[in-house]
């Protein structure tokens, strides 16, 4: 089955649980087929955890959840070597990261030290415990949720290095009037989450990943992507711009969108559409810049400053 058909089917299934979030589901699937980690940020009660669980259930594989609190230790995430008195030997017990889909719920409630325990596993898909490195089975995807930091006491900003490891940051927002009404009706008697079935197998996911990698990115599109990235680095209100890892993620996200739309080539529209989900969380604004603008504002300015490449035949030259 083609990617676009499969994604459409998954969107239909997940829309029984989370209403009116088709675009978000599509973005999540884009991250999945790129093996990218996703940060869901929204105010409480908008269905972040529910969406993460619904997506995890729709994909074949193991699922683990860590509920982050201030007293979760790094070893609770990665694992420990413990002494087994029966065998008189140290034994390795890998933490909940040994899974396919990891839900890191309320990630910003843990201390930065504990949050950092995910750094290695998110980037290198391996975990090192007391000098011993263990590989994590593929696919491995982290779906983290957090409430906006500004309105919270007792929360800790995610370290920049970790933010950069998130492929996308998505904001759920409130549902529309009609969607919320539908939600009230659907959730009146049953929990639709219980009825979800795994629809995407590991083999399919692997195949889709290969398909996405083969989506054509022309020189013009490459230049367009790089120009936007350069623009974020040169912006007067930015201390740290988009990293090279961010550039790769940006390209892959555009490829993913093209594949989901049923195309085998990337258009400027794909690039422009994916930018607000892939880039802003990677920007570190200057102190004065942060008081005047948000990361989204800065990205918007960067996008406006870069000329969008015209299609061949339309360009005057």
């Amino acid at each position: 089955m083609a990617i676009d058909e499969q994604i459409h089917k998954m969107k239909e299934q997940i829309s029984q649980v989370i209403m009116g979030k088709d675009d978000t589901v599509e973005l999540l699937m884009n991250a999945f087929i790129n093996q990218g980690h996703v940060l869901l940020e929204s105010v409480p009660g908008t269905g972040k955890t529910m969406l993460a669980k619904a997506v995890a259930k729709s994909v074949e594989g193991d699922f683990q959840r860590i509920q982050f609190t201030p007293d979760v230790l790094p070893s609770d995430v990665s694992g420990i070597q413990y002494f087994n008195p029966k065998d008189q030997e140290f034994e390795m017990r890998v933490g909940p990261v040994l899974t396919n889909v990891l839900l890191a719920d309320e990630i910003n409630r843990a201390t930065p030290r504990t949050q950092s325990a995910l750094l290695e596993v998110m980037e290198e898909k391996q975990v090192t415990i007391d000098g011993e490195t263990v590989g994590i089975p593929q696919p491995f995807i982290v779906i983290a949720t957090q409430n906006p930091v500004e309105s919270q006491q007792g929360t800790f900003d995610l370290p920049e290095a970790q933010m950069d490891r998130f492929f996308m940051k998505l904001d759920l927002g409130y549902p529309s009037f009609a969607d919320e009404q539908r939600m009230m009706r659907e959730h009146r008697e049953t929990n639709p989450l219980d009825t979800l079935q795994a629809m995407l197998t590991k083999d399919q996911l692997k195949q889709f990943q290969e398909d996405v990698q083969s989506v054509y990115v022309s020189d013009v599109i490459e230049t367009y992507i790089l120009s936007i990235v350069q623009q974020t680095r040169q912006h007067q209100d930015v201390d740290v711009g988009v990293s090279p890892r961010g550039t790769l993620a940006f390209m892959r996200a555009a490829q993913g969108r093209a594949a989901i739309q049923g195309r085998d080539y990337v258009t400027p529209e794909d690039v422009k559409t994916m930018a607000p989900y892939v880039l802003p969380h990677r920007l570190v604004l200057s102190l004065d810049g942060a008081t005047l603008k948000s990361q989204d504002d800065v990205l918007q300015e960067a996008l406006e400053a870069v000329e969008v490449p015209a299609e061949y035949g339309v360009h005057p030259s």
């Binding site: 930091v149 500004e150 900003d157 604004l285 102190l287 942060a290 008081t291």
Partner: peptide
Amino acid sequence: EGNSHYKRSL
């Protein structure tokens, strides 16, 4: 402390 605290102060 931090950027958001400073923003709120201003």
